[in-house]
Design a protein around this nucleic acid. Sequence first.
DNA 1: TTGTTAACTGGCCGACCGGTCAATTCTAGA
DNA 2: TCTAGAATTGACCGGTCGGCCAGTTAACAA
Lengths: 201, 201
Amino acid sequence: MSTRRDPEATRAAILEAAEEAFLQKGVADASTSLIARRAGVTKSLIHHHFGSKEKLWQEVKRRRFEQYAAGQQQMLDTSEADEGLLRRSMKLYFQFLQQNPEMIRLMAWMYLEADTECGDIDSQLLHSGVDKIRQSQEQGIFRQDVDPRYMLMVFLMLSQQWFQSRAHLCRDLGIDQDDATIDRDFFEVMEKIFFEGVLPR
Amino acid sequence: MSTRRDPEATRAAILEAAEEAFLQKGVADASTSLIARRAGVTKSLIHHHFGSKEKLWQEVKRRRFEQYAAGQQQMLDTSEADEGLLRRSMKLYFQFLQQNPEMIRLMAWMYLEADTECGDIDSQLLHSGVDKIRQSQEQGIFRQDVDPRYMLMVFLMLSQQWFQSRAHLCRDLGIDQDDATIDRDFFEVMEKIFFEGVLPR
DNA sequence: TTGTTAACTGGCCGACCGGTCAATTCTAGA
DNA sequence: TCTAGAATTGACCGGTCGGCCAGTTAACAA
């Protein structure tokens, strides 16, 4: 049996194991030994390929953020600026977080670490979203007395925070978490309130 | 100089140093040695008074949550159930988080650790809020086609997430973070959208 | 075929971790 | 005043951490 080498596969294995360990246990609590073991390589290889534990963490974040931004940008580029766009974007963003819970954990870690990296990656993304909203405002589709930037934030924050505090809030409020419909239920409420508000029309 | 003893003060000093260290660096990354040093005591005293690092963390959380719940409950008890109540509650909750940024970090850590403690403390709090909203719905003040539990969540989540992602979003969107008015600006938007929605009336 | 370089290994290092323990000092109640 | 027990100390434990290094092996270009 020949032990062939594949540095790219090694890098990938390390990155995958690192992402899982970092997001699950946190950077401080995830040891390089564990990551190496899960990746099926020696600890030294981590330092060989990435330099240090910290640089490995940076790379994990960068990669995740990049693929996130790519998907979101594509969604934005293939849409017109109308009320339906914001409704669809809302749903897509919500579904994205639903299917990528690691992204929620990643953003929570970045907040706690006061991480300022990866910002420029989604800066363009945000500006695209703001432009779409501003266009809708100019067409009279949305009310014009609110800053489009904050308007965008509201809908991003609602989705994100739902997946972050869903477990706590549902347990404390006696909502069955195993019920697969709670995500859909909440989204409907969120959509209603965002577009129409809580006051009767 | 007599070296008088004050176990209560010692406990308090340890708790204060622990809270700062835990919330700043995370439980895994904050060492008992550091906490002891900052509290001006020996490491052994931490174990003497609290048993273990984990129990100390539990105590830090319990204390913070208790004083948080006490303040919020008092606010709820001294209010009538009308639109003004929800507006005031919203503002008070927002201001509370604004003045207690540690609470945001605490909740973020608890999410990442999948912490299920301290839930019963604010469970009653949440149910009080839901009841108030339900009363308002029955009086026709609020629309009745949305679950009051989710309605409450929306406004809680908006406040919380604002303080969590404020730094990132404002930087990426080119909003001056040093400007002390951004909190007020965002609150106005959030209030507008929550009560009236984004569609023109 | 050979030589250079990158991939990879295992062992080792000093530092620090959470926790224990015996010994000492203070304090409150009998 | 005496004494039991709590408060406090510093030395110490086994274990793990991130990182380093000398040596070995595979890949590849000349």
